[in-house]
Simulated scan of single mutants.
Amino acid sequence: MLILIINSGSSSLKYQVRDTNDDSVLTEGLIERIGESEVTDHAQALDQVDQKLTRVLGERALDAVGHRVVHGGERFGEPVLINNEITRAIERLNPLAPLHNPANVLGIRAITKKWPKLPQVAVFDTAFHKTMPEHAWRYAIPDQLYRTYGIRRYGFHGTSHEFVSRHAAKLLGVGASDFNGIVAHLGNGASITAVSGGKSIDTSMGFTPLEGLVMGTRSGDIDPSILIFLAREGYSTDDLDQLLNRDSGLKGMAGNNDMRSTEEAAADGDEQAAIALAVASYRLAKYIGAYHVAVGGAQALVFTAGIGENSWQFRQSVVERLGALGISLDDAANRKKSNEPREISTEESAFPVLVIPTDEEAAIAEATAAVIGEQNNQ
């Protein structure tokens, strides 16, 4: 199948076309600054995509479109064929992901308008975490808040965590449903997931992608009383949102949300950069220890995404804190640059430490093809 993968943002549209027969990428691109003079809306952005596809694909036609949708709420636990009712259901989840779901819906509606007969599939970032037990997704707040507003832990980056878990199991020579491990998705946004029997049983992100690890611009875990204190000091809700989502994390501590720049600054003697890296690696190490317990003893610790795949320094700083678990890195293997799945731990390590490159577009294409295939067989 030829699958067009769409990741629609409020002012951007990232796309890729994959042939699921051989998992090849035929074309990809990113259209930015949607809403400005040159590209007024997502429909016009798709016109540009269509021109590119015509040049690349020639007479070949798309079979389906797969959309990355950030929030699936409690309803969506697996990829689903999109129709008008599904689109409206995704739209009703906008309050849970105001920065993401409205943009995802814009992409869906733009495709529907341009290619009304082309099947579309929604693949949800939250879906992999639907298997979390209630004791993991509950907050210790009045039940009415959950019943009324859906306030609970949902988790994100699920498409990546599921993809990486399957490939880690393959590298270890075990079935996907037999994999017990810890997957750390580390990019500008970062999360860690405890995987037991191939399923998510806990994850660091919660009601929103703000909870959990120290990220590029997000604070991660924070005492909620700080927000009450700052509100009393005159901070508005918009101020607090800006503070915690865009001005905190590495940016707030070190002045830069880029991990490579922060590491370079720390190496040059910047004390604030060094502290920021220490806070981030310590936070991650604490979660790894907790999730090792949660899965009943991990078969592997897996690093993925931009930082997880490329920063040997950060991987080292994290694993150095995990001596009590008996794991250790092979320095040469850890420093080696590669785009391939690999083991970077020593032979003496209590369990393997792996680097598995993530490929969310491949996962979305695969899920889309599966849904369309099932639909065609009915």
Rank of each mutant, 00 (worst) to 15 (best):
N188H: 14
G197W: 14
G297F: 08
I108K: 00
L171I: 05
D239V: 02
I90N: 06
V56H: 10
S225M: 09
I182S: 08
A122W: 02
A280L: 09
D221M: 01
A367H: 12
V123K: 00
L13I: 14
G175Q: 15
I226V: 15
Y139G: 08
F124L: 06
E271K: 15
K114F: 04
G66T: 05
G107S: 05
L171P: 06
A136Y: 09
I201E: 09
N188Q: 13
D247N: 13
A169G: 07
V39Y: 13
I356F: 10
T54I: 13
A194V: 11
E271Q: 15
A103D: 10
L62S: 09
S281I: 03
I201H: 09
G175R: 15
N257T: 04
L240R: 08
P119A: 00
V353D: 07
N104T: 04
G66L: 05
A184K: 01
F156S: 00
R33S: 15
E264S: 12
V214H: 09
S165P: 03
R18N: 12
I34Q: 03
S349H: 07
Q378Y: 03
P116Q: 12
A122C: 04
L4E: 04
S204L: 07
S317D: 14
K130D: 08
E348G: 08
H42F: 02
R283H: 10
S281R: 09
A254G: 03
A122V: 02
A140Y: 07
N104Q: 05
V105A: 07
Q299L: 10
H157F: 00
